[in-house]
Design a protein around this nucleic acid. Structure first.
Lengths: 197, 197, 197, 197
DNA sequence: CATGAATGAGTGTTCATTCAT
DNA sequence: TATGAATGAACACTCATTCAT
């Protein structure tokens, strides 16, 4: 008589373990053994919940995106327009250890996505969502008169998100040059420029 | 007399093979065996020209940087200030297949650098150089009255280079959203904003 | 429930396989693949039971020492002084096939120990123990009036153990010259000389 | 038109290089590349003078024996009987760095000889010679009344040579226990015992 | 003869995956 | 379901050997 387990729950446990390892030790350290051990299970369990290792990594990426989105939703509650945008962008940049880990995970996946259609698809889906939110916030900020309106919101969104990713990877690779303070300052100034120029 | 080969030439052959693999199949696929095979040699040859695999990857990264620098030097000859800056930034962004390849390789190395001190060191050295050149061009453009002077050149340089890297990776990951045209337009507009705010 | 194996048992299987190979083909032939095959397993099994090859070799050496010690303990029970010493020394010399194997393994390890600190340490520990036992037996034999007392027991112990090792290696390398009978005779005579000079 | 070289001379150069490496870094470090480099030649030369690596090692062993024999012949000139024997035995024991190296080489070869008929044959030939010399010296010492005659010279020779080898290997493996002084003292005492003991 | 480029089997080790229990 | 034993291909690297020049 088989034990009744909650499949989705187990998957999440394993994926969380994978995320922890990737954040802590890098994507190379995320072997199936390490993941199983981190999750508190034996090697063999993984087979029951994932077709192969790639599926675990993919789920880890999705989970990471979901965590970010959840956190954001909470922070953004009650905020609108420019204030919400500011919060969103600041939350997408490695200003503390937790977000630095998330950025590291993201950057590690960028390289893999270039040669993995499945990963790429996940990245694209999430990126499109984020872009949509930013564009919407820009539009509502424009309607509220908080920012200038002489530029296409889609262009501004792309510029902001590119800057966020660029600054993020620079913070990881060149921390001496891009300190947390400087990163925050540069990002906030860019947001200010939406208003007056 | 034995067959005399040009060591530097062989190294470049091997490094080129490594670059091809990284671009085509990702940095994970760049095993010593795969590199040797791609270069048309047996496993053992690599020993003659490289101490270990890391040296090959490092050389591949350095070669990529050197190619970019060489090309840039040529393009920049005769240009100064803002015009030179514009050329430099446009050249650091994946607008054609060749530069897309270089960016892809770079992104692949970003992930690796997060867990490899040797690679990180190379990345940092090259990044510092680039930052220095951009800052210098900004200063001379400011002196020539081509751009506003109300912002610290170092901050502007960091913003521009972050934007370049952010747009580059977006171009690779989301080509449908960031077309070559759009990428060029966004970058040029950002440069224009240096002038009139 | 998976197949449960006794880890200690498996380790012993593998170590026994390693010992067989070393005895049969020399320590150089004891590759991880050869050991696994000799044990009847695939390459990968070794990881489950040993951290690395050194641990296997080390265990093989320790196992050999333990076997000798166990056998000796049994033989020595009830014996004291000179009689015990005689038994001990005779047991440390390749008089039959089993002990010849042990000596061969030991000699193989001598060479390795010269360049391997870990192996050397094991050799030293075991040698010190043996030296201590021999010295103790010499002292009690002296107290019992069984042997002369004009020589430092430590010196006598070293001489006896050096002779044991020298005769052992000669028995292996020059069996035509050092037959089992001759080896036994020479060793017993040396023990007799402890009594009457 | 081929260069005329002295084959025997080249062989000796290479063998000397091999010996230097084995003495300095152990028998495992004696790769063909290392030997060729130490000899000041390229990899390829070895083929002209040796069938394979085993032949080099064999020659190195023979050369080592020859060197010992040569040195001994010189030291023994003018000496006879017990004095000559004393000199011979002291010279076969690792009392200084040079002889320690030779002993290390010898011990390294012992292990290999157990599974290599060719090496074993060389060891046996040389051992028989040494045994013959020692026996002869014992006989002449006996005739000269320098030592007792109640023991078979062949047995005494075997005992002395076994002691020499045993003390030698103990000096290498347990230098803290068997110091050079102690080794010399133990050996000289054993020789003294030939007279009155 | 001498060179050194090139080979390819072999080394210890890692790891995703399979599967009997 | 869960276990963990077992597999075997793959990894980076080493090295004796071959051979065109």
């Amino acid at each position: 008589m088989p034990k009744i387990v909650n499949h989705e729950e187990r998957r999440e446990e394993v994926v969380a373990a994978a995320r922890r390892i990737i954040l802590r030790d890098g994507i190379e350290a995320a072997t199936t053994r390490a993941i199983a051990k981190e999750a508190g299970y034996s090697n063999g369990v993984l087979t029951h919940y994932f077709a192969d290792k790639d599926e675990i990594l993919l789920s880890a990426l999705e989970a990471s995106h979901r965590r970010i989105a959840d956190r954001l939703r909470e922070k953004l509650s009650g905020l609108t327009g420019l204030a919400a945008l500011r919060e969103l962008l600041l939350d997408n940049v490695p200003l503390d250890g937790e977000r630095a880990g998330e950025t590291g995970l993201e950057v590690g996946f960028w390289g893999r996505s270039l040669t993995s259609p499945a990963l790429l698809e996940v990245q694209r889906r999430e990126a499109a969502e984020l872009r949509y939110v930013v564009t919407s916030l820009l539009r509502s900020a424009a309607e509220a008169g908080e920012i200038r309106t002489d530029e296409d919101p889609e262009d501004v969104a792309e510029r902001l998100l590119a800057l966020v990713d660029g600054l993020s990877v620079h913070r990881l690779l060149y921390p001496a040059n891009v300190t947390a303070d400087r990163l925050e300052r540069l990002l906030l100034r860019e947001i200010d420029r939406l208003r007056d120029g």
